[in-house]
Amino acid sequence: MRHIISLLVENESGALSRISGLFSARGYNIESLTVATTEDPTLSRMTIVTSGSDRIIEQINKQLNKLVDVVKLQDFTEGNFIEREMMFVKVKAQGEAQRSEVKRLSDIFRARIIDVTDTTFCIELTGSGDKLDAYINSLHETNVIEVVRSGSMGILRGEKALTL
């Protein structure tokens, strides 16, 4: 099953490689991993999307917790949380018909065109992974030049928070 795990990690140079090294050494999947510093510059916030049997997921959580650089961790999967991913897509946009088609699709998905040339659009879209997939699928494959996805970020709903 797919799990989304959120971590607070010491903002140390080795922390990221310890975490990614754990996944490769033990043969766990990483679907995506995002990381950036928080409002507290000594802490990074990381979101890992992974998958595996219940036993593997339990091990992943425990092994992550065991890393000295990991301050706090929560597997969001069981709880109530919001998940979003951001994506840039560069598409061919040549001629009136094609340009308006791309624009129409972007409106439907509430995507934003953030860069324009005579022959291309660059589009920004935020949403669940499914929504981003759906958007890409709606474009003609041959028109897609480049896709950049951030990987998922998650946050708990309501008053609960993963903080120190």
Binding site: S13, G14, S17, R18, G21, A25, V68
Partner: peptide
């Protein structure tokens, strides 16, 4: 050394 030993230490420091 921190990279080489990472997989076989409890923790390491530079």
């Amino acid at each position: 050394a921190v990279g080489v030993t990472r997989a076989c230490v409890k923790h390491n420091f530079l």
